[in-house]
Design a binder for these strands. Structure first.
Lengths: 349, 349
DNA sequence: GGGTTTTGGTTAACCGGTTAACATACGTTT
DNA sequence: AAACGTATGTTAACCGGTTAACCAAAACCC
């Protein structure tokens, strides 16, 4: 009796067949109240609970969902971990997913995938019930994925293949607009835009569109020399860009970034070179990570609720796992300008 | 052929029995080279790869490891997520685990567990192959866990039940010592110690021991009024403690904390009340999180390699999962004082 | 050349659930 | 009273692997 009891043990104990126990467990209405009670008692007495592995095998349902993180092709295979490590954004998102998933007896698996083949295999190997794609992926991967036959939720994705999947996103264009507009209102005229590669990131492109729109409305030129792209979102890369700005002696006072991480890195580099934020440069971040109100200066930023994004993504996924025919949905979460200390009114000198 | 091929498909294709394929897959030396090649070709041609669910069921091995996070009893069940969200420490650790696990085809599951029953069930349900306990748990849980029959690695644990399990830890006492000693060398005499509840956290107690040792060696009194405990490690709690220090008008110039998170929160609160770090207070953090060199002032802290801690934990676990008879091991990782901007020499006024 | 290993392979039960198909008893309908 | 649903179970195959037990042929031994 030291071993975990099986469904057959329960059946024997309640004097019914294993099938009946299974029916009780799954709420199939084929069992009389009298026997149902007997079975429930047996379950109680033996301390029985089902083995997910066995359930997975026979039901083809693992109660496992996967979160896919992008690996750019030049990253080593194990880059997942380092991406995770550095990017607080992922962290908050995943927490949100976990939260909702756990409530429904689901567990969450993480992976970074280099190519679609690997991804497909992972899904099949583990019998994953649903998938969340977090970040930017090569388009080709989605074609493959659509054949997998499991619900998929995309986060922050704008390509046309979006039409096939659920989507949780924010109004990135508005975000870019709000950030730029804030600086414009403060009197800034030479405003930089700091992002990842615009060719690769539709999200950043949207934000840039909003950025341009604000500038245009204010009658300002979008200066290509004030456009900075970096490969990855890390503190260090933020520093590099700041140094580049100083080295090249760019004429600018305002900076819009696509991430708090970049903004924090930039501020640090500026400080290092005796430049003051916000006196010399006003910087707007993006995301409003939990750290962002505790830096000095605290960050003016475009707030999005990343945690909720994760929750919504999980909810969408769970609904789709439940019943198939559900309509594909797009959820757009609000963004909001949060003014703190990293931006200030420009003083005409 | 749209469906994933099974081992029987491969068998048919190679004109052998499923058993033979299985033997090839598992490197059992019962197959001639000639047939082995045939089987391998069939696998290749069909694009076969095993179903982990089925393997789990028959082998009782899931290639899944679990990371247990502590839930204090007054937290709601879904507090895992919020713990994860707020504590960058966990984040880095988990990244390290993931890294090593993935290399060996393992996936990682996270959970917070309130009581041992829940934990035991989770392990059994998912057929977990190994477990990592990250943080402080009630002692009783370990007695239960030792009966589970799977390898276990404890992180930062000092109780005597440690004798039963593997352990990855740092020299916490040295850490506390180095932090206090650093402040003493800078001329500080009134030094506070900020931690979680010392009754509950052996780790913090060790650090406090080192702290006291440094003070004693320098002929300084350990003042109980300068001892601050908080329930949770969050930025906000750091702020609260700082405010308490200011409100109660404590006479102190140096502060040793058990976490960068607390230190960052404290610095922010001090700044808010027009106090300057390090001019008014010198603060030493603990951990050296990735953010800690980018705050202002950047943090003087006791560096530990959390990521490596995760890696080591996973390695230990993997070794134990491989062959059973391995000796229990304790790994102690180094700590190191990193001097940055949050501490400075005291000026006699 | 007959007996014994060794080599290389197959068969079939098993892991712990699920579920389609079948069986029986009982109440209803006509 | 025959025919037919309906409610309540059971049987047994199945999910996709693993592995103990068995077996035939070849190799080895005197």
């Amino acid at each position: 009796m030291t071993n975990k009891p099986t469904i057959r043990d329960v059946a024997k104990h309640a004097n019914v067949s294993p099938a009946t126990v299974s029916y009780v467990l799954n709420g199939v209405k084929k069992v009389s109240d009298k026997t149902k009670i007997r079975v429930l008692e047996a379950i109680e007495q033996l301390g029985y609970y089902p083995d997910f592995t066995a359930v997975s095998l026979s039901k083809r349902k693992s109660n496992l969902i996967g979160i896919m993180l992008p690996l750019t092709d030049d990253m080593p295979d194990n880059a997942t971990a380092s991406v995770l490590k550095n990017n607080l954004y992922y962290n908050e998102f995943i927490s949100g997913v976990e939260m909702v998933a756990r409530e429904q007896q689901f567990d969450t698996l993480l992976t970074g995938v280099a190519d679609q083949e690997e991804c497909r295999k992972w899904v099949k190997k583990r019998n994953l019930d649903g998938l969340i794609f977090l970040g930017i992926f090569p388009k080709s991967i989605f074609e493959q994925m659509s054949k997998l036959g499991i619900p998929i939720v995309l986060i922050d994705t704008y390509e046309e293949y979006t039409k096939l999947f659920n989507n949780v996103q924010i109004d990135d264009e508005l975000g870019g607009y709000l950030a730029a507009n804030h600086l414009i209102k403060l009197g800034h005229k030479n405003i930089a835009f700091v992002s990842t590669n615009l060719n690769l990131s539709p999200v950043d492109t949207k934000r840039f569109t909003g950025f341009k729109k604000a500038l245009n409305e204010a009658g300002l030129e979008v200066n290509n020399h004030l456009l900075f792209e970096t490969r990855e979102i890390t503190f260090e890369n933020g520093m590099e860009i700041a140094e580049k700005i100083l080295n090249e002696n760019k004429e600018l006072t305002g900076i819009v970034t696509v991430s708090d991480i970049l903004a924090i890195g930039m501020i640090k580099a500026f400080q290092y070179h005796q430049k003051h934020v916000p006196n010399d440069f006003s910087i707007v971040g993006f995301d409003d990570l939990s750290i962002s109100q505790f830096t000095t200066p605290s960050l003016t930023t475009i707030k999005q609720d990343i945690f909720k994004k994760g929750e919504k993504a999980a909810e969408l996924l769970m609904n789709n796992i439940g019943d198939q025919g559900v309509e594909r949905q797009i959820i757009e979460l609000p963004v909001q300008l949060v003014v703190r200390e990293s931006t200030k009114k420009i003083v005409s000198n």
